[in-house]
């Protein structure tokens, strides 16, 4: 009986979600009952944030696979999510887990080259190519700064990078960062302090000072 009710609700949600605007909590509840269309809406709402976080933590390689992994884990884990208002924190936590797993894989040498090497070899070449092509473009400096930020992030330890990305780039409050990383707020503050200092030093070495 409850199975039928759930599937009815899910199919109802499928038709509703095509037209009506639903709150996030409604979407999550429908996803918990198996509504794929509602999950598509959740994906559309969050994919940019997840993508950007993963890109800053893991780089370009396997980015699509990592995004897919995050959303598949989210779909699997959604029925167990009790407090729907923490969905965003929970999704960032999954992203962080996926990034950590990827980093471990790289460290174990499953991938033939580490991310930094890949970046320095392949992406650096692409970047130089972009720079060469965009020589007359007005946003040449912007491209250069973007490269510096990317390299600066790679220069940080993974723990420091995570805190800096979530707090300074994703603009999340320190309390939420602490919840995502499962560490005390004090540790977030301390890591943030050290990460910013390291980043500043790196930029100074590149000729940029504040």
């Amino acid at each position: 009986m409850s199975e039928m009710l759930a599937s009815e609700q899910a199919s109802k949600a499928d038709t509703e979600s095509e037209t009506g605007v639903q709150t996030e909590q409604e979407l999550i509840l429908l996803c918990q009952q198996g509504a794929r269309a509602s999950f598509r809406l959740l994906y559309q709402r969050y994919q940019q944030r997840v993508r950007s976080t993963l890109y800053q933590l893991c780089g370009k390689s396997l980015l699509d696979d990592l995004v897919q992994e995050v959303f598949l884990r989210a779909w699997k884990g959604l029925p167990k999510l009790k407090t729907t208002k923490y969905f965003s924190t929970w999704l960032y936590r999954i992203s962080w887990n996926v990034a950590t797993d990827q980093r471990r894989k790289l460290a174990r040498g499953k991938e033939k080259a580490s991310f930094n090497e890949k970046y320095s070899d392949k992406e650096r070449l692409n970047y130089d190519k972009d720079l060469f092509n965009a020589q007359d473009a007005p946003d040449l400096m912007h491209l250069h700064y973007q490269d510096l930020v990317q390299r600066g992030l790679n220069n940080l330890s993974f723990d420091h990078r995570c805190v800096l990305v979530l707090h300074d780039l994703e603009d999340l409050p320190q309390k939420q960062v602490a919840q995502i990383l499962d560490i005390p707020v004090g540790t977030v503050k301390s890591r943030l302090f050290h990460a910013r200092n390291s980043f500043k030093k790196f930029l100074e070495q590149q000729g940029i000072s504040f």
Partner: peptide, 19 residues
């Protein structure tokens, strides 16, 4: 200095390639 650094990071944060 901190504010400048943060705004610099936010302005120039690497944009992920499209999916």
């Amino acid at each position: 200095n901190q504010d400048n650094l943060i705004s610099f990071l936010q302005r120039n944060q690497p944009i992920p390639p499209s999916a």
